[in-house]
Nucleic acid binder design. Structure first.
Lengths: 164, 164
DNA sequence: CTGAATATCTTGATGATCGAGATACTTGAA
DNA sequence: TTCAAGTATCTCGATCATCAAGATATTCAG
């Protein structure tokens, strides 16, 4: 009812999509606050986050996943390495490659910052039945999958005039 | 067991929290791709997004919501205004204030970019029963609320040692 | 061993962001 | 009214993340 969204009669599916979008906006804002509270840039936290999911990966792979230029990733690793979040490690089988290895103590530090959110979500989760929780987990996984798909689609289009 | 997460026996609540975190990472990456595909910076898209939810707000309020310095917001509005996403409007009752008014045609342009995701989520939603959809909507809303709460907590603490 | 391909790093330029101060307006009180 | 303090936005100079393009090092195929 504020002004932009909130039309009177929307279908449940539309309301779900709209609510997920709001969640997306909150998520981006939240991550930004976590980053600055850790003294990291947005991009740097995002990269640390990715590294935890994937485990050690090469600089090139990180460049692909984040969409950053390779030179940018070099500077990014420099910062994270200096701050102790990751370390470089030569790939013995291909000495051009640099593996980025997340450091464990840093993981704990970041986890501590995420903890209040984590705990709240766990607490929220405990208010559901086992079947409901499984539904929520599955839904979140499916939305994650959709987003990944969309990233590749949009990324494929590349330029801004791709519309047609 | 790739390396970082994936411990053997985690509770459903933990798995939910972990899955939501993955969703968060995807969300941030997705927003970034949308932004660059629209020729906007991350911050600019985020601001446009906020403006749709809130409707017209002052530059100062946008500064508070985004956490950006006031001077940064000035430059941000300049960019968005030049690109046609918003316009400035003097508040007649307080001429110091500048209302930032989202422009409608730009809304459509951005909505078009979000559309594939939106449609996919709607399609996904249609595979659930009415009760299940309501559960999902309510859950998303609750997580949004938790994040907003956390943003204020983190923001209030400011420095990184604020834990208590 | 040579040339092409690949992975990372370096460099110079651009632009977003911040902090601090400047400007313009409002409010409350004498 | 007039003044001082408070508030909202803007300006300016400095800093840092980012990009594009080229440099360097390594692998691989022949």
């Amino acid at each position: 009812m504020s002004s932009q969204n909130a039309e009177g009669s929307t279908s449940p599916e539309e309301r779900l999509a709209s609510q997920m979008r709001k969640l997306g906006t909150r998520t981006v804002l939240y991550q930004q606050h976590v980053a600055s509270s850790l003294g990291l840039s947005n991009t740097d936290l995002k990269s640390v986050d990715i590294l935890w999911e994937t485990g050690p990966i090469t600089a090139g792979d990180l460049s692909k996943i984040t969409g950053l230029a390779t030179g940018t990733v070099t500077a990014l690793i420099d910062r994270l390495e200096k701050a102790g979040y990751v370390r470089r490690e030569q790939d013995p089988s291909d000495r051009r490659r640099v593996m980025i290895v997340p450091e464990y103590f840093a993981r704990d530090e970041v986890r501590e910052t995420f903890k209040p959110l984590h705990d709240s979500v766990v607490r929220l989760g405990s208010s559901y039945t086992p079947e409901q929780i499984e539904l929520l987990i599955d839904f979140a996984a499916k939305v994650s999958g959709i987003m990944e798909e969309q990233i590749h689609t949009l990324g494929g289009g590349r330029s801004k005039s791709a519309a047609e």
